[in-house]
């Protein structure tokens, strides 16, 4: 199996397109960093962090008082934020008001979809290209089952995605450190089991990047399925990218009117919704979302493997 994945990796990295993707990804980080630096320069004189935290808390409290109809999740989130801020004041852990490396890495995470875009492009091409090149014939007459061939291809896609996200993380850390310095407390405050705890910021950021990668992985799986079933990379990439960018909004619109929107894939791709308590459809839980994601994932994989293994190759 390692040999098969190595094969896919070689095919990926012997093509110039892959390097263009990596180059663009790094460029996005640089552009984002430049923009942040520019905005930082324009920002007015920093306020005292204690004052900021206090203003924040009074705003939260006001929300809690004025909107009694808000969901339980949202209420909990606001109460947690207030608790965290109070902890901050009590323990005298300053809130970094200026940009620093970790705040930059956190913000840069918003552009992580670029890595997702490239992962989808690779996923959409990895099976279909073999048909386009005609090489699928030589690939499938080896003493290796079609299941293992397809599995190695999917593994290569996931590895490539992980590689891009890691690269993005690493590079934005380097650029962030270079531009904004290593200052800033490497501590993240979070709420665990009813208590405020101090957490290493790195753990928080890795978790954040992981959460942000969920939609990308599931859409790459969709692209992979379309690629394997329809042998058409344009279709696979087009559909998946369209859904990546419009899916959440469309689902949001539907969720305002229809209860069944909670069964749609994009009601679940953003797992961060459980952090802030602003869930797409009321009553959804993290476990329900994980279940739905697993169901979609398995359905995509089933179609991909079933069709790929059964199909006559007549390209």
């Amino acid at each position: 199996m390692a040999g098969l994945i190595a094969n896919e990796w070689v095919k990926l990295f012997k093509r110039p397109g892959t390097y263009v993707m990596i180059g663009l990804l790094l460029l996005v980080v640089c552009a984002f960093a430049a923009l942040s630096k520019y905005e930082e320069g324009k920002k007015p004189e920093q306020q005292d962090w204690k004052q900021i935290v206090q203003t924040e808390n009074s705003a939260y409290a006001k929300q809690l008082n004025e909107q009694p109809e808000m969901t339980a999740d949202r209420k909990e989130y606001l109460e947690e934020q207030i608790a965290i801020n109070e902890y901050r004041l009590a323990e005298n852990i300053p809130l970094s008001t200026s940009e620093h490396v970790w705040s930059f890495v956190e913000k840069a995470g918003d552009s992580l979809q670029v890595a997702g875009l490239f992962m989808i492009i690779v996923a959409g091409g990895i099976v279909a290209s073999e048909y386009t090149w005609g090489t699928v014939k030589l690939l499938l007459i080896r003493p290796v089952s079609r299941f293992r061939i397809l599995f190695s291809k999917y593994a290569a896609v996931v590895l490539f995605g992980a590689f891009l996200v890691s690269l993005f993380f690493l590079f934005s850390t380097i650029v962030g450190a270079a531009l904004f310095g290593l200052s800033g407390e490497p501590v993240h405050l979070t709420f665990v089991n009813g208590r405020v705890v101090e957490q290493n910021i790195l753990i928080y950021l890795i978790k954040l990047y992981g959460m942000k990668s969920v939609d990308v992985v599931i859409l790459a799986t969709l692209a992979f399925m379309i690629s394997a079933v329809f042998r058409n990379s344009s279709l696979a990439i087009g559909v998946s990218l369209f859904l990546l960018f419009t899916g959440p909004n469309l689902t949001y619109l539907l969720s305002m009117r229809y209860e069944w929107a909670k069964y749609l894939l994009f009601a679940h791709t953003n797992l961060l919704q459980y952090e802030t308590g602003e869930v797409m459809v009321e009553g959804m839980t993290m476990n329900f979302s994980l279940l739905m994601l697993a169901a979609y994932f398995l359905a995509f994989q089933f179609f991909a493997f079933f069709v790929f293994a059964k199909r006559d190759v007549a390209a």
Binding site: L4, V10, K11, K14, T135, K137, L138
Partner: peptide, 25 residues
């Protein structure tokens, strides 16, 4: 076997193509 035209990975060298298949046997 060769089925129809011998279609290989054009972006790889001949040797790298052979290596692809060597890994599968």
């Amino acid at each position: 076997a060769i089925v129809e035209n011998p279609e290989m990975y054009k972006f790889l060298s001949g040797y790298d193509n052979l290596k692809q298949y060597a890994r599968m046997h």
